[in-house]
Write a protein that binds this DNA or RNA. Structure first.
Lengths: 241, 241
DNA sequence: CGTAAAATTGACTGACTTCAAATTCGGTGG
DNA sequence: CCACCGAATTTGAAGTCAGTCAATTTTACG
């Protein structure tokens, strides 16, 4: 047929970061059943404790994963961008162990988890890439753990800015020299285990030192090599081909 | 045949934590090709940057995952115990993004990654459990990230002790009231993003407050509910059935 | 324009680190 | 069995990176 539905095309593009997909595989992905939903900024995609029946593809906008601790503070665990598969994690686990929330207004395609799992095992070609994708997410989580556990504030923030630069570039949302980062300093603080006050001071220091420039929510990295060095950043953990 | 090789039995037991396995599935796991290796304490299982050809099952002993940062400091990312599958992660990824090192002398069964991946996709029953296992590892990593990013030292260490208690209990290595923890305070510090001096002071405080007792490397939890409370510990993220 | 959210700044505080030394533990050879 | 020695633990004193508190300015946007 000609007028094929391309709603899930970003999922194909995302998985193709990890390996090649045959035309038949591509068609199988595009044929997945889905429901399109729009969620406003701050709206929930999944809540901790839910027993999710669907996984979703982030078609536009930004989302983040988070957990709350007893003191009421929040840890941001990951930031997801266009094309990211949210909750392949939860396609197998029984209940969500963390919350996923919209950072901006988002458009997401919700796919029944059974359909996803069936596809994964009926087409190992696709299944391997989906598994791969969850492994890369885990790799990023380990890098964040390292970042928060053993790097000082300056290095930590520089590292995060470098990661966003590359991931947004891969998602076609800017290049590593300049991109939009729709996160408040409060959210950056929760992602790095710092306070917003200290994030503010650190960003200013990086700005004054000439590493970056800021304009609204746009970040310009003036000297990639220098920032990557300051941020102890090595992109191996992102597992790009 | 009668004298079936039970070397990989702990892998069956581990996967059975996540779901049931049929007799045929069990037999398929036990039939995986493997090489048994002993590795002394401090020896490497995988090194960051390696292109691993095998994944392995930890048959006895303890191991840990780690990364180094530019300043030379170390972050411990996970502790693995008997029965744990090390580097299912690396069975699909091209290169190891972190190092796995023996904490004590260990005995590990190395299985070719192709054999593992083939089994996963020829028997979805097993494949789902293996995928599930890597998702649980990722869930634990997110909890650790939360722990290090947003809990104070006391809570953080209490949380870690609770996690070990449950995981070791599940592995048949003690109960939640008392277990052997073969980690130095230096290693505990690297797991929690603290210094060994502060770990020492915090453990002593927990001891003096009556929460725990220590004898050599054995930990006794005097009041589980109290420690879990102090450690903001909720076992959902371990995804036990 | 008006208003709430976000960013910014200053003064002060404190949880955790650093440095350094003393004590205990664990394994090994005699 | 004990003496020995390096590793691990423990302790004290002093320092610092990042947090807290609180006020002001800027930005976003209906």
């Amino acid at each position: 047929m000609n007028g094929q539905d391309l709603t899930l095309e970003p999922m194909v593009r995302k998985l193709e970061l990890w390996g090649e997909i045959s035309p038949a595989g591509r068609a199988a992905i595009l044929a997945l059943p889905y429901t399109l939903r729009e969620i406003p900024a701050h709206g929930y995609v999944v809540r901790e404790g839910d027993r999710p029946t669907h996984s979703c593809l982030l078609r536009s906008g930004y989302a983040f994963r988070q957990k709350l601790v007893a003191s009421g503070e929040r840890q941001i665990l990951a930031v997801q961008v266009r094309g990211d598969l949210i909750d392949l994690q939860n396609s197998l686990l029984r209940h969500a162990d963390h919350t996923v929330q919209a950072l901006t207004r988002i458009e997401a395609a919700f796919m029944p988890r059974d359909a996803i799992v069936d596809l994964a095992f009926s087409r190992p070609e696709i299944g391997k890439l989906m598994w791969f994708d969850t492994l890369v997410e885990a790799s990023i989580a380990r890098e964040w753990l390292t970042n928060v556990g053993r790097r000082d504030a300056y290095t930590r923030i520089a590292h995060l800015l470098c990661e966003f630069a590359l991931r947004l570039e891969k998602a076609g949302l800017g290049d590593r020299g300049r991109y939009e980062l729709p996160m408040t300093q409060d959210q950056l603080a929760d992602a790095t285990g710092l306070t917003s006050v200290h994030v503010n001071r650190t960003l200013r220091a990086m700005d004054e030192a000439g590493f970056i420039s800021r304009d609204k929510r746009a970040v310009t990295i003036n000297d990639w090599a220098a920032l990557a060095d300051a941020g102890d950043f090595n992109d191996e953990y992102l597992h790009f081909r």
